[in-house]
Amino acid sequence: MCIGIPGKVLSVGEDIHQMAEVEVCGVKRGVNIALVCEGDPAGLVGQWVLVHVGFAMSVIDEVEAQETLMALEQIGGLEPVQTN
């Protein structure tokens, strides 16, 4: 089973070949956005994405992201999540 963890895109490079900075459970990490970027990468800043092994697999809305984080926390897959 593969699980995507929601993360919020904080910044992007000039094109899809540069890693985006995504906050996943309070940790900032580099993520490849090539699979979800359909134009100017700057349009992804502030968006939520599902991250799996360093790749953004899909763009999701904030409600789905928060629900997924809470579900993962409840099954013991995550530490308690800080929501802003």
Rank of each mutant, 00 (worst) to 15 (best):
M1C: 01
M1H: 05
C2Y: 11
C2K: 10
I3R: 08
I5W: 11
P6C: 04
P6E: 04
G7A: 02
K8H: 06
V9T: 03
L10Y: 07
L10T: 06
L10I: 15
L10C: 09
L10M: 14
S11T: 14
V12E: 08
V12T: 15
V12H: 09
G13T: 00
G13L: 05
E14T: 12
D15Q: 01
D15F: 10
I16H: 04
I16Q: 09
I16A: 12
H17C: 07
Q18C: 11
M19C: 11
A20I: 03
E21P: 00
E21I: 15
V22F: 10
V22E: 08
E23G: 08
E23Q: 15
E23P: 07
V24N: 06
V24A: 09
V24K: 04
G26M: 08
K28H: 14
K28V: 15
R29F: 02
R29A: 10
G30E: 06
G30H: 06
G30V: 00
V31Q: 07
V31Y: 13
N32R: 14
N32V: 14
A34F: 13
L35E: 14
L35S: 14
V36P: 00
C37M: 05
C37H: 05
C37S: 07
C37W: 06
E38M: 12
D40R: 05
P41N: 03
P41D: 01
P41F: 10
A42V: 13
A42Q: 14
A42F: 09
G43Y: 03
L44D: 00
V45N: 03
G46H: 04
G46P: 01
Q47N: 10
Q47G: 03
Q47S: 14
Q47H: 10
Q47M: 13
W48H: 03
V49T: 00
V49S: 00
V49P: 00
L50V: 01
V53L: 15
V53F: 15
G54K: 09
F55E: 15
F55C: 10
A56F: 07
S58L: 05
S58W: 00
S58T: 10
V59P: 01
V59G: 02
I60E: 01
D61R: 05
D61Q: 05
D61V: 01
D61P: 03
E62T: 04
V63A: 13
V63G: 07
E64S: 13
E64F: 11
E64D: 10
E64W: 07
E64K: 13
A65W: 05
Q66V: 14
Q66K: 13
T68A: 11
M70Y: 11
M70D: 12
A71W: 08
E73H: 06
E73Y: 08
E73G: 06
E73I: 05
Q74L: 15
Q74S: 14
Q74K: 15
I75P: 01
I75V: 15
I75Q: 12
I75G: 08
G77D: 07
L78Q: 07
L78M: 09
L78N: 03
E79H: 11
E79P: 02
P80S: 02
P80F: 05
P80M: 02
P80N: 04
V81P: 04
V81D: 02
Q82W: 12
Q82D: 12
Q82R: 11
Q82L: 14
T83F: 15
T83V: 15
T83K: 12
N84P: 15
N84S: 11
N84K: 10
